[in-house]
Amino acid sequence: MKGAERIEIDRRYCKGCMLCKYICPCDVYDLGQERSDLDYLMPHVARIENCKVCGLCEQHCPDMVLTVVAKKKGKEKE
């Protein structure tokens, strides 16, 4: 099964709109407590193990700050 190795959030430009949390079908995000450089509360990747790497959050992010990095093939069991 597909999985994400990590999800990068670019803290320089995140405006905390939280559309990623709204759009994600797999409940990966929570509202976090950390602030971005623009002083907005950022999403927190709380359940990376749920991520199916569908790319919806990355594709919808209005500030293009999300990068979903897929696990490399054959690394699933690590």
């Binding site: 405006k15 990355e58 209005p62 293009m64």
Partner: peptide, 28 residues
């Protein structure tokens, strides 16, 4: 910044002036 942004955006113009959650960034 996601890879598409890295490749094509003018970094010195960032962040987008759009408000949080605006659709305009999605169109970019």
């Amino acid at each position: 910044m996601n890879p598409l942004g890295e490749k094509y955006l003018r970094k010195d113009f960032l962040p987008f002036l759009f408000c949080p959650g605006c659709g305009d960034g999605m169109i970019v």
